[in-house]
């Protein structure tokens, strides 16, 4: 777009730019402030937090707080065990991400590459169910799982990840616009089996879409509080995910060390914050495009 402005116009633009920048800086500060306050409080002693409440100057007590948290956890006073939490959340997040991405790719591939009678019906069903909120089915899901004796197990948290309608939708969109079907034909002529074609040609060609979906799936599953708290009813210490452990800290009225309280929340968000800042450009673009390459 060419600048059509005159001199007086450019003066006005300058003023507007300054005003807008001020608002943006303000909103950026608001966006970061709660996390910053969390970090500051995680580095202060309980005494300091109780005395001054909120501060912008970090303390020096981060490692001491982590040590205290671990000591309390070993003594059994708190159910928050950071390493255990990381491990449990990672097991669930990695396996669900893997299943979601692999089977969504497969389903999308089946819908794009092959022609079969119920193809459009299958796709319509996927579109229709995409918007059903999990809260609507959770009573039925929970009762079903408790009848099968599967509560307190990771099975109901991981296996359903195979069916992720919205991810299938994205994968199909991106395949439709980027995947050359001739390449499948060529592979067939060379005698490549259908599954081998999928794994050696299909998956590598979908890599960009897979990366975006994998990041979103990982973050969503790592952050998920609803499903684990619904299924892991015994609140077995060994099984808790990080968000559930944060919850035990919150409801623990005996825990009077505020440094420990804040550091436990701090430890729970550090992994996603790191993942975010590594992939941020990618993630923001993914949201803008809706994961679809055009």
């Amino acid at each position: 777009m060419d600048m059509a402005g005159t001199k007086s116009n450019s003066q006005a633009i300058k003023v507007r730019t300054i005003c807008v920048t001020v608002v943006m800086v303000f909103l950026a500060i608001i966006s970061l402030l709660p996390v910053y306050i969390l970090i500051v409080n995680a580095t202060r002693t309980s005494q300091q937090i109780v005395e001054s409440g909120v501060s912008l100057i970090p303390g020096l007590n981060l490692f001491e707080n982590i040590k205290n948290l671990n000591a309390l956890s070993e003594a059994g006073t708190v159910e928050y065990n950071a390493l255990r939490g990381y491990l449990n959340s990672a097991v669930i997040a990695f396996s669900t991400t893997f299943l979601t991405v692999l089977f969504s790719c497969m389903t999308a591939y089946g819908l794009v590459v092959y022609d079969f009678r119920f193809k459009n019906a299958a796709y319509t069903i996927i579109l229709a169910v995409m918007m059903i909120p999990v809260q609507v089915t959770s009573v039925g899901f929970y009762q079903f799982m408790s009848k099968l004796g599967l509560t307190d197990s990771y099975f109901p948290l991981i296996i359903p990840a195979i069916a992720a309608p919205s991810v299938v939708f994205f994968m199909r969109q991106s395949m439709k616009s980027t995947f050359p079907l001739e390449i499948v034909e060529a592979a067939r002529i060379d005698g490549c089996s259908e599954f081998r074609t999928f794994f050696t040609i299909g998956i590598p060609m979908m890599k960009p879409a897979i990366a975006v979906q994998a990041i979103f799936a990982f973050v969503a599953n790592w952050n998920n509080y609803y499903m684990p708290s619904m299924i892991l009813i015994s609140r077995n210490k060994e099984q808790l995910t990080l968000p559930m452990m944060v919850n035990t800290i919150l409801s623990n009225e005996k825990l009077s060390d505020y440094g420990v309280r804040y550091v436990s929340i701090f430890l729970s968000i550090i992994p996603v914050v790191i993942v975010y800042f590594i992939f941020s450009r990618f993630i923001v673009e993914g949201v803008a495009l809706g994961g679809v390459k055009e």
Binding site: A28, L32, P34, N223, L242, P243, N247, I269, Y276, V284
Partner: peptide, 15 residues
């Protein structure tokens, strides 16, 4: 700005 303003969205809601 976009990256910073989107950040709150990815932080664990429970935390």
């Amino acid at each position: 700005y976009k990256i910073v303003m989107y950040m709150p969205n990815i932080i664990t809601a429970a935390s």
